[in-house]
Design a protein around this nucleic acid. Structure first.
Lengths: 192, 192, 192, 192
DNA sequence: CATGAATGAGCATTCATTCAT
DNA sequence: TATGAATGAATGCTCATTCAT
């Protein structure tokens, strides 16, 4: 792992623990095990690490998707698998996405968000296209637009469950997921 | 308007203009027209104003909903009106919601979020209940859970449109909204 | 107890607990159970309470002396009783004398110290005079000067025992006191 | 002279001139010729410099003792020389000792006092031991305990002379010293 | 490339003091 | 007299950034 990667991963850890505002560059370099000055060889400022963090997180997301969503499975099952991936990542990194969001908001990097999220959007679009071609979902939907909606929907519910609500019970989460699968299935007009 | 309100409204203005991180307490008190020390009589820190800002924003939201959503109108029209309200608020305060979100994440106030958002959740639940009772939407959905989903969905798409995508064209936004109405209508199993 | 007395006693408590520098006027008024503004009706500043505190402490000292030193007892016994009084007060208020000292140093009130301590000096002078007249102690000593020395000596050893040395054992303290009695007795040329 | 030493010496100067309470960290760093932030690399706060100041002062004391107390001289003469050293230092730094005392009281460093003063205590103990072995002073005294007493006694009289009493006349001081020499000589049972 | 001691502008925060009630 | 909310000057302290090694 090179120095740059070390910094990014250290930043994720520290941001998670202390929040963006309270994190000092000195905290990051300490965890990264490098010198204070070295940080500035790779990043011009604390917040400029954000896009790289986002990239890492989206990378994780895509990796998990590729690992856990089985192309052969029925559409609804794949949908559940996608939801599981997003929920699990949100659970594991309860606030990193919020953090990225916050961090990006505070800089001029917001525009990069689209580009960073592009792989996930693209994957979802293709997933929907495939289903549309196979006539599994309704023909009237616009795959790109719908892809973004679904991703936003899954993420926002995941956050509601793992961030806002004070630690819900397993059963509640299961019900919530089921409701979400139904909601999306109906929305897509899945033919059973 | 008492001092506390003055601070909250000044904070909204300054946060919008400069972002949370770059805002100094001195900026806020200057706009609020009070002394530096007075701020600390009401709030222990800059970020602790966040929950109150959130309250104000949700208040605005509920007010707009009550003004613009006509109870007599057909379900789909009301749905469009709700979406318009959320989109317009997001457009008017493009980053305040992001800010609240970010600000809350950075403090321990995240748990208050649920309570602050409660009025909106409740309104939406009742809106769905009514429609369910009138057999306008499918009977199988759970109104509370679905209410949260719809709110999360509308907000996340609104943010995608007004925050991430570099200022979209009007036409694109219109299409996006239409797609959203369809998506939700299908999801709810609206009987036409 | 009138307001002024309340302030002085509250100040003693708070100074002991937090030290002079870290004590806020607001702490004092809170303990005194009066309003912030009321403080300034009686004292112009935090440090100006010091001389009154000193007075209270010297008052306590004189009171204890009058209670515990028996005029009829042999000289050495009375000496031990004096030492006990000073030691016990130092033990009970381990740092108040240091505090007064510190507080006085920081203002222009140092000169008042002499006046405040005067009763104790006077009492000790007379105690020595009496003993000198009765030919219990050597005739060559100057009672005023020696009085101050003895007081300084007893106080400094008391502080060494109760402030600096990390909480000594009872036995050590007893030995120390005995040594002190001997020391002073020799110094005064006590005839046995 | 390294940065830390610079800070300590600057602090002594500023504390002497303005008193502890009125001294700002910015005053110290200005005299020390370093940056504000640098101060905090070496000391966590203004008062935490105190133990180091104490060390410097005790260092000065020992140096003067070694210079001015002649081992060959008669016991009484050496005693006078010790008293002169303490008096002169107290005169030269009329409030630094008070300051240290005050400063230590206000922090948690009081316990360090013993360690810092140790060299002086040790020197005095040995001085007494030697005199005891040579049968110059009475055999019944405990050297360590008596050493502390004598040091406390000399210091407290010096402070009475140079701090409390409003600038005494030379003659008064001479008499006071003489009285002190007598007092100690009797106390030690010096054989003439 | 890497370091980490030093910097000092910048800001949050405090708290003695006031004054309208 | 008594109050305590409001004040804002004063200051401690932080921490991103630099640069000589």
């Amino acid at each position: 792992m090179d120095k740059k990667e070390k910094i990014v991963h250290a930043a994720i850890d520290v941001f998670r623990e202390k929040g963006v505002e309270k994190t000092k560059v000195s905290d990051i370099v300490q965890i990264a095990g490098i010198a204070q000055g070295t940080f500035y060889l790779y990043f011009p400022s604390k917040l400029s690490v954000m896009p790289n963090i986002a990239e890492v997180m989206v990378g994780k997301m895509m990796e998990d998707i590729n690992h856990h969503v089985q192309e052969g499975s029925p559409f609804q099952v794949q949908l559940e698998q996608i939801i599981d991936v997003v929920y699990n990542l949100t659970k594991e990194y309860p606030d990193v996405f919020a953090l990225i969001y916050a961090g990006l908001t505070q800089t001029e990097h917001l525009k990069e968000w689209e580009a960073i999220y592009a792989p996930f959007y693209k994957w979802m679009s293709e997933f929907l296209s495939l289903a549309k071609d196979s006539e599994i979902i309704r023909d009237s939907l616009h795959t790109e637009r719908t892809a973004k909606m679904i991703i936003g929907l899954i993420e926002s519910t995941a956050e509601q469950v793992y961030l806002y609500d004070n630690k819900q019970e397993k059963e509640t989460i299961r019900l919530q997921k089921q409701e979400l699968v139904s909601f999306i299935s109906y929305a897509l007009g899945v033919k059973r």
